[in-house]
Design a protein around this nucleic acid. Structure first.
Lengths: 145, 145
DNA sequence: CCCATTGATTGATGATGTCAACTATATATG
DNA sequence: CATATATAGTTGACATCATCAATCAATGGG
């Protein structure tokens, strides 16, 4: 075995951990459509709603970047959300080319509902010991910061 | 404060942990399209490929259930994957109504590539101590079993 | 003042996803 | 056995998601 210091050994715990997270990701991905449907949203719309915090307007371009999708796609997504009265476009005072998005009161309420549904922990998680739950929180916090 | 035994206190570590996992989920979700594009796949096709282990044929109906989508959607997805020679439909010997899916050698190779890309841990994960990585593996394993 | 760049939109096109209707097979019931 | 009911997959119609190329307006540097 000839690993250099910069190579990650194939079975390093980091790889294994990420593999498990990927597993979890696919499970979560499959559950999003039904959660979304209950709120009359599509998965993509949920993602947009998730990314706009009420009172913190987001430029459309930034949204496209975060979603890693084409700007024209954002136009369509926002068109539909706006026609349902969930978000509103406002011209940026700083740069008249950009439009910033904010949630309407209705959109804000729907976002809260969405967050509630999505952050309700699944049974498997609640079966873990509280000690393990706390440890998980600690590690994930460090991972996301 | 009036919690009954069946209610989860809003700040229970389980909730917090799931909230963090949801955060991670959205990040991961946004990165899937680019990973997929490199392999000339769509996110949905990645999900299908992920769910078919080589040599373990899966009935189409079961796939629809796991993906939590309509059966007709699976028809379309498999049509395109089959036309690219990645999967094959075979009639089930047990029940002539069902068709089982298996990966072709090409599909199997592509799946391996996909797994490799997706399980390459991000930098943030590798910055964790090995001790934390191991702990994460232990907890996630228990979570997924 | 030109001109290259940037932010958003439009139109064309293909993929994803749902629903209702249909075909073929399987199974239950009289 | 015969009929009825249920199930697995496909098809066609339709809305949404997503990309690309082209366009328009605003910005900012020579």
């Amino acid at each position: 075995m000839n690993y250099t210091a910069r190579m990650t050994p194939p079975h390093a715990p980091a790889c294994q951990a990420w593999q498990l997270l990927t597993q979890l990701f696919f499970v979560h991905r499959a559950s999003l459509p039904s959660v979304a449907a209950e709120l009359d949203l599509s998965p993509a719309q949920c993602h947009v709603l998730h990314l706009i915090e009420p009172g913190r307007p987001v430029p459309m371009g930034q949204l496209a970047e975060t979603l890693a999708c084409d700007a024209s796609n954002v136009t369509g997504l926002v068109d539909r959300l706006e026609s349902r009265g969930l978000v509103c476009r406002r011209p940026s005072p700083v740069d008249r080319r950009v439009k910033v998005l904010d949630l309407t009161p209705t959109g804000s309420r729907l976002r809260t509902l969405l967050q509630d549904r999505m952050t309700k922990p699944p049974a498997a998680l609640q079966r873990l010991s509280v000690r393990d739950q706390r440890t998980l929180v600690r590690i994930l916090t460090r991972l996301l910061e």
